[in-house]
Each structure stands twice: as structure tokens, then as C-alpha cells.
């Protein structure tokens, strides 16, 4: 019964997502939705390593940037189609994740966040200064949208319209959710939860914690690269700022405020916080101060974010009724 109801809810949700573009005629709102999808993939990728394996990775924005630049450059400099550049970009990002994860994940406690923060800053400067390849501070322009897909007898799908990009991003969000959901609900996911809970105990129980952390980090950076690659092609231009620490920080904010260690939390955070950020644009650099305040208040009053808060409230109501 419960399973049936869940399936029904999911079906309705998918239907709503599919028909949204038929009702939203204003391109701007559709654009916001595409961006939400990209931030959802990013937030879910960060949540995998942070919320499940318990490793505070402060370079996720940088991996987003690596995926974006790799996909963009493969299209522009190598003339590859988006459909080849995107998977290659993701693989490259994941490879860099794997290689950098090997030394950094060996550390315990506060060293991993510090190590990843330094890594993020170092890679940002490489992107910002490597003029010949990345265009340096000027950025990268004129990146193509995904090539049209030809379906025999049915016609072609072009990605020039915002609506078509909306469907593409929705599809990738769907894939991301399925893969991450399967991973965390499996026995392998239990190992990640064990690592988050107590690494010594996990090892005493025969879990190869280093191996699992590295695999988790590699998958996590793969999806950050995916979000970045789609971003590059959709926006058509990239700035070094896209790989900046601030991007990592915004992702962290989405995850923490939505609800770390859940799937729905980062999705909620990734939908609503960018909207807020849009409203706060007039603040310029001061925006970061507001973000910092929001983060501190969340950690203080809603340690498990909006989702955690709702759960606690529901549990309380349930208890009251029970008495």
C-alpha cells in the first residue's frame, strides 16, 4: 500500500515536471528552472561525500569548474560534440577527483576540509591565470549548445530553446538521483554511513575505509563535473569565478540549509537558495556576509536543515497526538 502510494506520488511528480514548460511561457522562469536543475545535481554530488561519507569537501565548486572548463574546451578547442565532450569532461573531473582524493582523504579531522580548500584555491588560480588555454580572467566564450539529436523517422531534437535544455537537465537530474539513491540505499551505502559514524569502528568491522572514501569522492566529483559540463554548454560562456571557492560555499549552503544526509534536502536547498541569492544581488560582495550568517543560524537552530526541522516538527505533532 505504502509502496503503491509512493509510486503514485512519484508518477505525478514526474508528470508535473514534464508538463511544466507547457504552462510557463516566460523564458526567464524556465531559465531559473534549468539553473535549479544544475544546482540540484551539484548539491546532490556534494551531499554524497559530505552527508553520507561525512567528509567536508570544500572544493566541490572547483570540481564543478573543472567539469565546465573541460567540457567547454573539448568542444571549442578539440571540436568535439557536446555528447562526447560531456562524458569526457565528467571522466576527467572524476580522474582529478580520484588523484587528489588519494592523498587528501588519508587525513582525518579538520585536515580534509583544509586540504580541499587549498586544492580548490590552487586550481582556481590555474584556471584564472592559464590565459592560453582557459582564456584567463576574460573567460571562455561562444561555447555551443548540445548538438541536435536525430531520431530516425521522428525528426530532430534541437537544444536551442530553453525548454529543450530544461528537459535535458531534468533527465540528468533524474539519472543523478537514481544513481545516488541506489548507492546510499545499498550495503555499500551502509559502509559510507559507517565511515561517517566512526572510522576506527568501521575498520575494526573489516571495512576498507580508505577505498570506500576514494570511490565515493570519485563518484561525487563525477557528478559535480556533470553539472559543470551542462552549465558550460547551456550558458555558452565561462568565467574563472565559476570554479571559485564561493561556488563551493554556495553548494555547501544549499546542502546544509536544505538538509544534509538526505536526498530531498539538497534538492530543496538548491531550488530555493539561488532564488534568494538572485534577490540579494544588489548587495554585491556583502552577499557572502549574509550567506555566512544564514549558515551559522542554520547550524545553530536547524542542524539538519529544513528537512530535519520539518521531521522534528512532524515527530512532535505525532507524539502529542499519541498522548
Amino acid at each position: 500500500m505504502d509502496k503503491k502510494r509512493k509510486a503514485l506520488c512519484l508518477g505525478v511528480l514526474i508528470l508535473i515536471i514534464l508538463i511544466i514548460p507547457l504552462f510557463i511561457k516566460d523564458e526567464y522562469y524556465l531559465h531559473i528552472l534549468v539553473m535549479s536543475g544544475i544546482w540540484i545535481i551539484s548539491a546532490l554530488s556534494l551531499n554524497l561525500i559530505l552527508g553520507y561519507a561525512g567528509q567536508l569537501n570544500l572544493a566541490q565548486g572547483t570540481f564543478f569548474g573543472i567539469g565546465a572548463y573541460a567540457t567547454g574546451l573539448l568542444m571549442q578547442k578539440m571540436g568535439l560534440s557536446f555528447w562526447a565532450a560531456l562524458p569526457l569532461g565528467c571522466l576527467l573531473t572524476a580522474t582529478i577527483g580520484f588523484v587528489t582524493g588519494l592523498p587528501t582523504l588519508r587525513t582525518r579531522g579538520h585536515y580534509f576540509p583544509i586540504a580541499t580548500m587549498c586544492l580548490g584555491i590552487a586550481i582556481y588560480y590555474v584556471i584564472a591565470r592559464w590565459d592560453d588555454v582557459t582564456g584567463g580572467a576574460r573567460g571562455l566564450f561562444g561555447l555551443p549548445r548540445p548538438d541536435p539529436i536525430v531520431i530516425p523517422f521522428l525528426g530532430t531534437i534541437s537544444f536551442e530553446s530553453t525548454a529543450s535544455c530544461y528537459y535535458l537537465v531534468s533527465f540528468l537530474v533524474f539519472i543523478t538521483i537514481v544513481v545516488i539513491h541506489r548507492l546510499i540505499t545499498s550495503l555499500s551505502g551502509k559502509r559510507l554511513i559507517a565511515i561517517r559514524g566512526n572510522e576506527d569502528l568501521a575498520q575494526a568491522l573489516g571495512i576498507n575505509t580508505m577505498r570506500d572514501k576514494v570511490i565515493c569522492f570519485t563518484i561525487s566529483t563525477f557528478f559535480a563535473g556533470l553539472a559543470g559540463g551542462v552549465f558550460a554548454s547551456y550558458m555558452g560562456s565561462l568565467m574563472a569565478e565559476n570554479a571559485h571557492f564561493v561556488t563551493s560555499f554556495e553548494m555547501l549552503l544549499n546542502v546544509m540549509i536544505g538538509g544534509v544526509g538526505t536526498i530531498i534536502g539538497p534538492i530543496i536547498g538548491a531550488i530555493f537558495l539561488p532564488l534568494l541569492s538572485e534577490e540579494l544581488h544588489f548587495l554585491g560582495g556583502w552577499r557572502l556576509v549574509v550567506y555566512g550568517l544564514i549558515l551559522i543560524l542554520t547550524i545553530r537552530f536547524l542542524p539538519f536543515g529544513i528537512v530535519g526541522g520539518i521531521r522534528t516538527a512532524l515527530a512532535k505533532r505525532h507524539d502529542k497526538r499519541g498522548v
Partner: peptide
């Protein structure tokens, strides 16, 4: 139960690839 599930042989060895 979750604690004891984490400790099982199947849990410590099940490959990530098959999980997905």
C-alpha cells in the same frame, strides 16, 4: 539493527558497482 547490519560480511565486501 543498522549497527549490526554494518558489521556483516556481505556489507563490508559488496562492490559499489553492483550496488548501483
Amino acid at each position: 539493527l543498522e549497527n549490526l547490519l554494518i558489521g556483516q560480511k556481505q556489507t563490508r565486501e559488496f562492490p559499489v558497482f553492483h550496488s548501483i
